[in-house]
């Protein structure tokens, strides 16, 4: 019996040691697996590309004149803050997301700068009636993004987690750029309510009853007698309007929810816009006088 007790105990101890060994090596193993799987996606994407894409986009993705644009191209894959082709259509997400959405959903028409292509890009994603599963579309994205390193890009990378600007309107913002802000306003969907439509207050002077743009209004509002917010400058007022839309509701405004008295504007942008993006938006809004 003694040797059974000893051997059994030794086995238990060894098992525990092995589990400890696994615990120590597990982080690097998981990282290794993830890296290996990401590159296998590139391999799978290359095979899919060969089967589905080269007839229009060229064997090496260099594009075919008069058929489809180049994908193996600097203006799609690299650029700051976004590659030129994404900026041109006002895309606000990552390059991966742009490519993914174009493959999955197709393109109803070519973007303006590439209007020479007579055929439209078909929808490939299963969810839109195409033949490819989500993981296959992801593999194609990984393969296409793997052309970026030759243009000095970083290659396939997950959509970066955004560090939101927060709701403290007194923080110092970086210098904003009005042109980038305009592209952002279009890309993030602000213009759906704010340009001339009747929902949000229109930004453009031409659509305001008093003929004042949002920039001009901001300069006066925060000093008004009925103002309930905390802004001490026009910039802060615009900042507040973006991240804390309920801080001050202009009396009689069209954007108040009739049932609960809250603003219709979602109070989410403190978490989803970066400091730079807010600064750009403010610069753009200030220019609308």
């Amino acid at each position: 019996m003694t040797w059974r007790v000893i051997l059994g105990t030794v086995s238990l101890v060894l098992t525990t040691i092995l589990l400890g060994f696994v615990a120590v090596t597990e982080p690097s193993r998981m990282e290794g697996f993830t890296r290996a799987y990401e590159t296998r996606q590139i391999e799978v994407g290359a095979t899919l590309f060969e089967g589905r894409c080269i007839t229009c986009h060229g064997v090496q993705g260099q594009g075919i004149e008069g058929v489809a644009p180049a994908l193996n191209a600097a203006d799609l894959l690299v650029g700051s803050p976004l590659p030129p082709r994404l900026q041109e259509i006002g895309w606000a997400g990552s390059t991966e997301d742009y490519i993914r959405s174009a493959i999955a959903g197709g393109r109803p028409r070519p973007s303006a700068a590439f209007a020479t292509y007579p055929q439209r890009m078909p929808t490939w994603g299963e969810e839109y009636g195409g033949p490819l599963r989500k993981d296959q579309v992801d593999s194609l994205v990984a393969f296409i993004m793997n052309w970026a390193p030759q243009y000095g890009g970083a290659g396939a990378a997950p959509t970066p987690a955004i560090e939101g600007v927060g709701t403290d309107i007194t923080i110092e913002l970086p210098a904003g750029d009005a042109a980038t802000g305009k592209a952002l306003a279009e890309g993030k969907g602000c213009t759906a309510c704010h340009v001339t439509a009747a929902v949000g207050p229109a930004w453009l002077a031409s659509a305001d009853p008093n003929g004042e743009g949002v920039g001009a209004r901001a300069e006066k509002r925060f000093t008004g007698a009925d103002y309930t917010g905390k802004a001490a400058s026009a910039q802060q007022y615009l900042f507040e309007s973006i991240v804390l839309p309920g801080a001050y509701l202009v009396p009689g405004a069209s954007y108040v929810n009739a049932t609960n008295g809250q603003s219709l504007m979602p109070a989410i942008y403190g978490g989803s816009l970066t400091k730079q993006e807010v600064a750009d938006l403010i610069a753009y809004l200030e220019s609308l006088k």
Partner: peptide
């Protein structure tokens, strides 16, 4: 077939 440097099939 396509074969990537880091695909590490040995594991």
């Amino acid at each position: 077939a396509y074969f990537h440097r880091d695909s590490n099939y040995g594991q």
